[in-house]
């Protein structure tokens, strides 16, 4: 998990003007999901947005911070800085003013960089709840201090401790000689695998990776540096990878209240293949990612990214004529819904 680093790690701002043309997408499947163009720069951000949040937004939109847990934690950490620098204007109280006037521009900005994850939504809802409950008579500095400890506790309880618990529990599911398959990269799967490795269980890992982010590569590198035997497959080789595996571990973006897993696009196919090979699929998910929303498939609600993102720089050049004609389009979605979940925590 990456924390928001100091602002000088700011991504080089690419002058990208063409994002404005985005709504032209009369997209076949996900047309209803293209509601607003993605923001890739600080241009046009409201002046109320805190510098830490500005930096964070850029890190979101350039996928430097990705993965729903990492995004949620980094958002809370940024909000700590926001709260620290906050001063209640005269005539209002912190409980009334902070949420609606100061926090919401930050959230709007983050949302325009990349749609909020379910976990982030849950955390924001919790934070607003905490703020609203602050007694208006509390002095401002004390209230801010309280809020910051609350946020720290939230991260500790709901993420760090939960991860610890889950990885303790899930590591027990790994038996000597197992071949664990995982898709792309999930922080909790990674810590579980490392945990099991430290416990002295000998097992090997298959990482299935996919375009365009190649998150699995990072995971594979980390694991192999710890001495775990890792094999790496591209997504099209997934059928072969699943055939060799004995268990599948998946991370989650969210768990729907109808029992379905909402996770990185491509997860469903992996789970489906595992299911047809009768391999157990184990999903690791913190309860902060549970949502009361429901979904039957990936079309209902999803996050769409600009189509160019699935192409590498060279491919973008090659496929340029397609964009000119406008008849050709590529679809990127970030998440996938799969209907059967064997285990969740």
């Amino acid at each position: 998990r990456r924390r928001p680093s100091n602002p000088n790690v700011l991504v080089a701002k690419e002058p990208k003007k063409d994002t404005k043309k985005e709504p032209k997408h009369a997209n076949l499947f996900f047309g209803h999901l293209y509601n607003q163009p993605r923001l890739h720069s600080v241009v046009g951000a409201s002046k109320d947005v805190h510098p830490a949040v500005l930096a964070l937004g850029l890190q979101y939109s350039s996928y430097i911070i990705c993965g729903s847990t990492a995004r949620m934690v980094s958002m809370l950490v940024a909000f700590k800085a926001v709260i620290e620098d906050y001063q209640t204007p005269v005539g209002t109280s912190l409980a009334r003013h902070l949420t609606s006037h100061h926090l919401s521009p930050q959230i709007d900005y983050l949302r325009s960089c990349r749609p909020l994850s379910i976990g982030m939504g849950n955390a924001i809802r919790w934070l607003k709840d905490v703020i609203i409950k602050i007694d208006p008579s509390t002095p401002e500095s004390e209230a801010k201090r309280e809020l910051i400890t609350d946020i720290d506790n939230f991260i500790r309880d709901r993420v760090i401790a939960a991860d610890q618990l889950i990885s303790d529990y899930a590591a027990k599911k790994i038996e000597p000689g197992d071949v664990i398959l995982t898709y792309a990269s999930s922080s909790i799967v990674e810590s579980t695998l490392l945990r099991a490795h430290l416990d002295g269980i000998s097992f090997s890992v298959i990482v299935v990776d996919s375009k365009p982010l190649f998150e699995g590569k990072r995971l594979a590198r980390n694991l192999s540096q710890h001495g775990i035997k890792v094999r790496c497959f591209s997504y099209s080789g997934a059928a072969h990878a699943v055939k060799d595996a004995s268990k599948v571990f998946l991370g989650a973006h969210a768990m729907m209240s109808n029992g379905r897993l909402y996770s990185r696009v491509g997860t469903a196919s992996i789970a489906n293949l595992a299911n047809s090979n009768s391999i157990p699929v184990i999903v690791l998910c913190e309860s902060v990612k549970f949502t009361e929303r429901v979904a039957l498939d990936s079309i209902v609600g999803n996050e769409v990214a600009p189509a160019e993102e699935i192409l590498s720089e060279r491919e973008r050049q090659a496929l340029l004529p397609l964009k000119v004609n406008g008849e050709e389009e590529a679809v990127t979605t970030t998440n996938d819904v799969w209907k059967r979940v064997e285990e969740a925590k």
Binding site: F29, S210, G266, D297, S298, E329, A330, V331
Partner: peptide
């Protein structure tokens, strides 16, 4: 013909359509 190109990982998401 309208042609939509998708990466391999999106197959399941789109299959319902």
């Amino acid at each position: 013909i309208q042609v939509v190109m998708i990466p391999d990982s999106h197959v399941f998401a789109i299959m319902s359509q």
